[in-house]
Amino acid sequence: MATGGRRGAAAAPLLVAVAALLLGAAGHLYPGEVCPGMDIRNNLTRLHELENCSVIEGHLQILLMFKTRPEDFRDLSFPKLIMITDYLLLFRVYGLESLKDLFPNLTVIRGSRLFFNYALVIFEMVHLKELGLYNLMNITRGSVRIEKNNELCYLATIDWSRILDSVEDNYIVLNKDDNEECGDICPGTAKGKTNCPATVINGQFVERCWTHSHCQKVCPTICKSHGCTAEGLCCHSECLGNCSQPDDPTKCVACRNFYLDGRCVETCPPPYYHFQDWRCVNFSFCQDLHHKCKNSRRQGCHQYVIHNNKCIPECPSGYTMNSSNLLCTPCLGPCPKVCHLLEGEKTIDSVTSAQELRGCTVINGSLIINIRGGNNLAAELEANLGLIEEISGYLKIRRSYALVSLSFFRKLRLIRGETLEIGNYSFYALDNQNLRQLWDWSKHNLTITQGKLFFHYNPKLCLSEIHKMEEVSGTKGRQERNDIALKTNGDQASCENELLKFSYIRTSFDKI
């Protein structure tokens, strides 16, 4: 039985969820670079991206490699990797027998973001014989899940209580170790020597080791999670996991709180800001991140802002960003909400898709409305799209047979046209069989910064309504002859009103 693990408890099935942008060198404390989270699957090609990484700022997932063999891993080693800020997950990587050479110096898994409450997941690794993470000293947050690894031993010899604050939620089941077939031998045991430290858990006094050649490092209890030197002297209180010299914040392997210019500090002093819960960055760093993602459509890219001495992905609820200094300031009234469309555009074809934009005031991208039916549609669209004030790209209304009016965009005031449909149009209306009105132009103002209007096959939309939009939106004169079809717009509506004058002759039985 794995020490510190839980057996036999019912657990939810383990679901495996399925960018080499360097964020800056980590400095003297770390020998390499800070790398983003990685999802490495199918083959070993991307694994080489770990070569210079000291910190993975995010998670590391290595999974679904069915053609790899043990010899493929023999020359692979990433000794610079010290810390993973989120979680480490391995799933069905064939041929991998140990992690001792792959990650010989991995010391800390912070667990800032977890995989279903777990910071370390080893699942269905069919050839893994031992973990071998002999320098792993601290899992700051989260638990361990090690399950269905039929060859995995050296679990009962690990004292997880020396690595985690609590072992109650560890789930370590259905491994070879369960069948008591392992016969784990710690260093020196074969020669009758006791080389590794022994600890007591559940009444068992057991030597602690990761492999037959690597003991588990056990520091004096007084050192807590700070770690200790090879001689057993406690590291500085700002260290986490390990250090090369005692009581020196510049000799830590990793930091308990924050890293700044080669030393570990309790908090980031001005003019620095907390970033990702582990390091200090200056304003320029946060500003660069903001600008890199301002026009990016890459998933996970955030326009970072500053709030409460932190550089964070977005302002919290009730705050909006001051564009001059990136500071989050309290909103006066309802907060603006910028919604970034991942692929640059979004099609609204149902109430469900409209709900995804609920509360958005600025759309960074283009909207395509293609709704053919739905219950209580006008009210639903207004509830979900009615706060949109600005669209950076274009607005396209296409084959939306259920629409009679666009009044559900009740606050839309600006279409920038930074991206144009077919390279020309910022407003595009095609084949809307029941569209009769755009907006009530006596109450609604709309500016279209650039781009043209396109109207074709809107049989109940009168040309007068379209011409009014040209005047109000500032697009009059931009359109070419064929942009607004004269014969297919309003051709099934009563669009022309003329005053009919009647004269009559009164007659009676005795007068003409």
Rank of each mutant, 00 (worst) to 15 (best):
C286V: 08
P197A: 14
L233C: 02
E151C: 07
V200K: 02
A190E: 04
I158F: 05
S225T: 11
K191R: 11
D248C: 02
L81T: 04
L155D: 13
L233R: 13
D169H: 12
D159S: 06
S324W: 14
V93L: 13
H274R: 03
I163F: 09
M137E: 09
G111R: 00
H59I: 03
Y154N: 06
G132E: 01
D165Q: 09
Y30S: 15
V121M: 05
G32H: 09
C219Y: 03
T199Y: 05
D165T: 06
P104H: 00
I84E: 00
T85W: 01
V121G: 06
F116M: 11
I312F: 00
R256H: 05
G111T: 00
L164D: 15
I172E: 02
Y259M: 08
T157R: 13
L89A: 01
V34P: 13
L289E: 06
S112V: 08
I306A: 05
C286N: 01
G95H: 11
T68G: 06
F205N: 12
L326F: 06
T140D: 07
N150W: 05
A190G: 08
E71G: 01
R162Q: 14
E97D: 09
Q303M: 14
C252I: 00
H236I: 02
V55P: 00
N202R: 06
D75L: 10
L44H: 09
L240F: 03
Y259C: 15
S143V: 11
S166F: 09
S317D: 09
V218C: 11
G232A: 04
C301D: 03
P104R: 02
E33L: 08
Y171I: 11
E124Y: 12
D159C: 02
P334D: 12
P313K: 11
T140G: 05
S323Y: 12
S237R: 10
L47W: 15
G203C: 05
P104Y: 00
K294N: 03
N322T: 06
E314N: 14
M38A: 10
E130A: 10
T45K: 10
N257V: 01
Y273D: 01
H226R: 07
Q204V: 11
N322F: 14
L326W: 01
E130K: 07
F285P: 01
L233P: 06
L133E: 00
R110A: 10
H127M: 01
V55M: 10
I40R: 00
I109S: 00
C223K: 01
P316L: 06
A198K: 05
L29G: 13
Q287I: 07
L106P: 01
C335F: 03
V305M: 11
F91E: 00
S161W: 03
I158R: 06
E33F: 01
S323H: 15
C223V: 01
P334F: 15
G132A: 10
V34Q: 02
I306L: 07
G300M: 13
I56C: 01
K224M: 07
Y272G: 02
K217V: 09
V218K: 09
T140W: 05
N43L: 07
C53K: 00
M83Y: 07
P334V: 08
C235Q: 00
Y94K: 11
F66W: 04
L60Y: 00
Q287T: 09
D39M: 09
R41H: 05
C255N: 01
G188P: 10
C228Y: 04
S324R: 09
F103S: 00
G111S: 01
V265D: 14
